[in-house]
Write a protein that binds this DNA or RNA. Structure first.
Lengths: 351, 351
DNA sequence: GATGTGAGTTGATACGTATAGATCGTGGAT
DNA sequence: ATCCACGATCTATACGTATCAACTCACATC
C-alpha cells in the first residue's frame, strides 16, 4: 500500500484562510447542516475561494467521519470479470448498473477479490468496506463469508436465495417453486406418471426450491411421493447411457432439470437420449427449471425465464433502502419468472 | 450524504486493548513498515485478537493517511452505462476490467457522474477522487475537465489522443496516421486521382490524425495537395444526393470516412450513392478509417480495426505505472491497428 | 562500570472532514 | 438598563490509521 504521489490538493482549511473564515464555515457552506445558516456575503466569499483554488471535497475524510460515499459494491463469488457478453451473469450486472446510476450511486466492481483470490476477507481485509454496501452474486458462495458479513453488520443484498442459520439476510431471488409446480402439474396432465428431478450437485437452496416445487406440483396433480425421483449430477460426465437407460427402465417419462451456467447436465441428457434412440419429447419429455440452452431451429426448450435485469435492479433498490432508509429488518424479495412454451415436453408416446 | 447505520466495527485500538499492546503495534503487525520487527509472541497475540474480534482495516482511514486503496476509476464522458453488449465501448471496458483484475485493483465505474449529470465536477465535488487514479474514455470530452484534472495533478490516463495546451497528459491511442496513409497510397496505386476525406464534425484530434495520414499518404503517392478534398459531416442528414453528386462531378472517385459510433455518415453515403446508381466499389471506392459497419453477405468494408481490448489493458498499465512507479513524466502510448481487407475499394471504372 | 547498540514497543501526531457546543453581536422586548 | 432570542461564526473534537521520534531493556564492548 503505497503513498500517493504528487502535490497535495487544497483543503477546507486553505479555503477558509483565503476567504477569511473558519474551516467550519466552509463545511457549512458546502453541506448546510446544523449550525445555522450562513450569511450571503460569507457564502459568496467562500464560493469564490473554492473556485479559485479548485477545491474538491476529500471522500476519504467524509467516509472516515462515517458518511456514505454513494458507492455500491458488486461482488461475485465466481470469476465474472471480465464481463463477457455471452456471460450468464451479464444481465444481472446490467440491472445493477442501471439502477445504481439512476439512484446516483457509483458502482465498484470487486474484480480483485473473488473466491480464487481468497474471497471477501482476502489479505486480512474486508475488501467490501470500500463501498457503502454491496450486492453479492454467485452460485458457489462461501457461507462463512456471508455469515461474517452479516455478523459485521455490513449492508448487503444477495442475489439468489440463501439461508444462513442465525441471521436473516437480505436477498432478491427468483420464485422457482411456483413455475416448477406448474410445470409438474402440466406434465402430470399430459399423462406422465413418474417424473425425475435432476438436481445440480451444488444447487443449494435454489435446488431445494425446485424440489419443493416438484413435490407441491405432484401433490396438486394427485401423484404419489414415490412417483417422484430425485437424482444429482454435477455435469455432463455424470450422465451416462446406462444411467439414462436405468431411468427409462424405471418408468421415467419426464425429466425436469435444474439448470447450471453451461447447462451441461441437461444437454448431455438430450445427447445421450438421442443416441439411445429416445426422441424428445415423444419418448422423453425434458424441461429446464430456469434458463434453458438457447433455442435451435428445431428445438425450443420448455423452461422459464429468470428476469435477471429486473432482479439486478431490485437488489440495488433493496440495498439503497438499507443504506438510506430507516432501521428496518433485512428485507427479502421474490420475483416471478415467465414461462417459456417450448416443444420439449409432450404427451407420453409408448415405444 | 447520510450517516452510516448500524453498530461500529472493531478498530485497531480495540484489538490493541484485547492483545495488551498499543495501537501502533497492531498497525506494525498488519503492515510491517519501519519501527522495527515485532516479536513473535506479540504478533501471535495480536493475530488472535484480530481473529476473535473479526477486525478488518478501515479503507477510509488508510486513504485519509494518503495511502492508495487499490481502486481504479473508469469515467466515460458519454453515457456508456449500462454497458450494452453491442456497445461501441464494450471492448475497452473488457480490457480495462481484465487488466485491473490482473494487477489486483478493483474497478470503480462512475455511472453517476457522466456529462449529462454535470461532468467530473458535478455537485462541487470531484467524483473521481474516490479512486486512486482513473481511466477516461469518450468522444465528447470536456477539455475543461481534462485541464482541471491535470492541474489538480490527479493521476489519469485518457483513451484516445487529446492534446491540452499547457499540459502533457497521459493517453493511449490508436495510430490512425499510418494505416490512413497506407490506405491512401493504395487508393492512388489503384488509379484514384481525387480523394475525399469525410470527417466527423466533432472528430477532434482523431480527425486531425486522419487528415494528417491522408496528406502523408497522398504525398508519398505523388498526389498534389489540391487533389485532396476534406469535408465534414455530423451524421446521415448531412449526406444528401446533391452533395454526393457534387463530389462525383468534381472528379472524386474515392472516399475515406472517419467512423463514428453508429457510422451513420458512411452508411448514408453508401445508401445515397447506391440510390444514384453509383456502385461501390466500381464507381466509388469507400473505406473507413477505423471501425467499419459489420460486414454483410456481399459487403466487407475496407477499413482497419482498432485493438480496443488491448488499448483498455494498456491504459490500466500506464495508470498503474503512474500510481506505483517512480516520478516519471506522463507517458503516451500509440498502438498499431490491423488492416481489414474488404471489397469496398477497387480500380476506377469509368461509367 | 560506563557506554554504546539494537531489538521491541509506545506516545504523539497528522491526514481532512462534519458537527456539537461555545461565543459574540445585535436588536427587540420587558 | 437588563435580559432574551437568535443569527452567524468559531473552537474543539472525533473518526481510524500509519509513522516518526522517543523510550525501555537486555546485552555486548571496551
Amino acid at each position: 500500500m503505497r503513498k500517493r504521489a504528487g502535490p497535495r490538493r487544497p483543503t477546507q482549511v486553505e479555503i477558509a484562510q483565503r476567504a477569511g473564515v473558519s474551516q467550519a464555515t466552509v463545511s457549512l457552506v458546502l453541506n448546510g447542516g446544523p449550525g445555522g445558516p450562513v450569511a450571503e456575503e460569507t457564502r459568496r466569499r467562500v464560493q469564490q475561494a473554492i473556485e479559485e483554488l479548485g477545491y474538491a471535497v476529500n471522500p476519504a475524510a467524509r467516509a472516515l467521519r462515517g458518511m456514505t460515499v454513494k458507492t455500491i459494491g458488486l461482488y461475485t463469488f465466481e470469476s465474472v470479470f471480465p464481463v463477457d457478453q455471452r456471460d450468464f451473469y451479464h444481465p444481472f450486472l446490467l440491472g445493477v448498473e442501471e439502477e445504481a446510476a439512476r439512484l446516483g450511486y457509483d458502482l465498484l466492481l470487486f474484480t480483485s477479490a473473488n473466491t480464487a483470490q481468497g474471497g471477501v476477507y482476502a489479505r486480512g481485509r474486508n475488501a467490501l468496506l470500500k463501498a457503502d454496501g454491496c450486492v453479492l452474486l454467485g452460485r458457489h458462495i462461501s457461507r462463512d463469508d456471508l455469515a461474517n458479513l452479516a455478523k459485521e453488520n455490513f449492508p448487503f443484498v444477495f442475489i439468489g436465495r440463501r439461508d444462513i442459520e442465525g441471521t436473516e439476510l437480505s436477498y432478491v431471488a427468483p420464485d422457482y417453486v411456483t413455475p416448477t409446480a406448474a410445470l409438474v402439474e402440466e406434465l402430470a396432465a399430459l399423462g406422465h406418471q413418474r417424473i425425475l428431478l435432476l438436481r445440480q450437485t451444488d444447487g443449494a437452496e435454489p435446488g431445494d426450491d425446485r424440489e419443493l416445487g416438484l413435490r407441491q406440483g405432484a401433490q396438486a396433480a394427485g401423484l404419489r411421493p414415490d412417483d417422484l425421483v430425485v437424482e444429482f449430477s454435477s455435469g455432463a460426465e455424470d450422465i451416462g447411457t446406462d444411467r439414462v437407460a436405468g431411468w427409462v427402465r424405471e418408468g421415467i417419462t419426464a425429466v425436469v432439470v435444474e439448470p447450471s451456467e453451461d447447462n451441461a447436465t441437461g444437454l448431455a441428457l438430450a445427447d445421450v437420449a438421442e443416441a439411445a434412440g429416445l426422441r424428445i419429447p415423444d419418448h422423453l419429455s425434458v424441461a429446464f427449471l430456469g434458463s434453458a440452452p438457447p433455442p435451435t431451429a428445431t428445438r425450443i426448450w420448455t423452461s422459464f425465464e429468470i428476469p435477471r435485469v429486473e432482479i439486478g435492479r431490485a437488489a440495488v433498490q433493496l440495498l439503497v433502502n438499507l443504506l438510506e432508509g430507516a432501521e428496518q429488518p433485512p428485507l427479502q424479495l421474490v420475483v416471478p419468472c415467465t414461462d417459456v412454451r417450448g416443444n420439449s415436453i409432450s404427451r407420453v408416446v409408448r415405444r
